[in-house]
Write a protein that binds this DNA or RNA. Structure first.
Lengths: 291, 291
DNA sequence: CGTTTGCATGAGGATTATTCATGATCGAAC
DNA sequence: GTTCGATCATGAATAATCCTCATGCAAACG
């Protein structure tokens, strides 16, 4: 059937005013163009050009196809430009969703770095406190999911970003601060400061307290990591946070941290669609995030 | 580069939900589709489909191309439909211009006939009293030119429609009515009734009076053929008209007609663009007009 | 587990596209 | 009027491509 090649040929002939010139523009021989046109005309059963006229005049049928070419070819070229941008990391979409609440603060400085290197990429961070982000990754609503638990699903590729240790955060003056490690029972009389999410999504419950059958004395929800640390420093309660999140506050000596039992370690992973791992703006994100 | 074929493939895969089904719809083997997609992906340097997912999910690049396919393919199909219509005489444009004033009345009944047989054709008659219609035929503004004088230009095809004789029209009671033929000098004292156009476009001047160096006694312009005949019948003057135009009035015996000298014969021609003579709606017009 | 389904791959053949060489046509220049 | 140059058409040969056949592989399903 008809192909874009034919439309490009017609447009070139119309714009240059001769088959010869059009052939040159298209890097073809004049003969190739002549054959191509003839074959198309035969297939359609319609003449497209009046070759006798100079410059060659499109017939009614030719004019109709020219209109088509004029509307279609720019659309195609535009799309191809976009794809070239994608192929070179100069365009694309990167919607990042995180299952890990405190990770957002870890993410932001890296995202600034990423934005500098991939300026053309449409970047967004979705706080998916509610919805399970993995299905949304599969159906294309987001492009990267950050999660501490790696669930291998068909079509997904997982990349470890960094290992961390969850530590008990408490005021430097707290009675437990001198201990080498904390045990679940230690929290039975404490106020536990947590993010406002369901407990099933908090490692401190799922991997530490619940297995030991312990409930904290009180639970209080706090919006931000900074506030969590602040309240812990003031002795209003204790928190469980990844080591990197409290590294800065630790140097100020207002808080102390304890290992949880044998050590509650984890790894943050990034999931992307397997088919897109090679896309520059996706691979670039993984490199920046893991680096 | 990318071709419509690729867009059709992508769209088919997206709509059917599998390569195999898409191949069937496109009357290709599954293998062909697989090769085609693979080659396109390699050429673009981008994955287009996530084959692991079921149904195969378009990647960002694939989604972009799908958007393109969804906008472009309907346009192409629409155009092809139009062309098919053209090829079968069910569509097209036929703008008719006439250099011959009295021909319009000859044309109209045939045009009605034509319209019945080529219902889809956009039909129009342009009274080009002013502009020379042949250049407009060449530049595409009109599609048929009716003219009594055939000027062969490159790219034009001429078809004789019918032969006619210009005859002197006068009242049945006119003194000259019994003569066998009229001579230019006979008009020296008569009022000549003519259409309101420059004399250079009237055969009676260019082919009869001027060669003999005769001027009519008076010249009076009249808009329509019917009025021309009416005034002649009333003895208000004489006219020169093609035989067919007065055939009807002649049967009513109110007018008589004379041969002009040896006989002022002519042929009405139709000019169309040479490349379009085979188009059904053009060839159909010529057939209807000449028949 | 075997069976089915969907996709990938390699090789061979068939179809298409392109080029080369040449001829026809037309207009301009001499 | 002849010659030249430019443009396009054409046929044959070649190059490129596209497609199919015959497989292989992996996941899904009973």
């Amino acid at each position: 059937m008809i192909e874009l090649r034919h439309l490009r040929t017609l447009a070139a002939v119309d714009e240059t005013g001769s088959l010869t010139a059009a052939a040159e523009r298209l890097h073809l021989s004049q003969s190739a163009l002549s054959h191509q046109l003839k074959e198309l005309e035969e297939r359609l059963g319609l003449p497209l050009l009046d070759r006798a006229a100079r410059p060659p005049r499109p017939t009614q049928a030719g004019a109709r196809l020219l209109v088509l070419a004029r509307t279609v070819l720019p659309l195609v070229d535009e799309a191809l430009d976009g794809l070239r941008g994608l192929a070179r990391g100069r365009a694309g979409r990167l919607f990042v969703a995180s299952e890990c609440h405190s990770c957002l603060e870890w993410l932001l400085p890296r995202l600034r770095h990423y934005r500098d290197r991939f300026a053309g990429v449409e970047l967004d961070v979705l706080s998916s406190a509610s919805l399970d982000p993995l299905p949304r990754l599969l159906d294309g609503a987001v492009d990267v999911v950050l999660s501490p638990d790696r669930r291998d699903l068909p079509g997904l590729a997982w990349t470890p970003l960094f290992a961390y240790e969850m530590r008990l955060v408490l005021a430097a003056s707290h009675a437990l601060a001198t201990r080498a490690r904390a045990e679940p029972q230690d929290l039975a009389r404490e106020t536990l400061l947590v993010y406002p999410v369901t407990r099933g999504r908090l490692d401190v419950f799922t991997r530490w307290l619940w297995p030991a059958g312990v409930e904290p004395g009180r639970v209080r929800t706090v919006e931000s990591t900074a506030m969590l640390i602040e309240l812990a420093a003031l002795g209003q309660g204790v928190a469980v946070l990844p080591d990197w999140a409290v590294a800065h506050a630790l140097t100020e000596r207002r808080i102390a941290t304890l290992r949880l039992g044998e050590g509650l370690n984890g790894t943050l992973y990034a999931a992307v669609r397997a088919a897109e791992t090679r896309l520059p703006h996706v691979a670039g994100f993984l490199a920046v995030a893991a680096g």
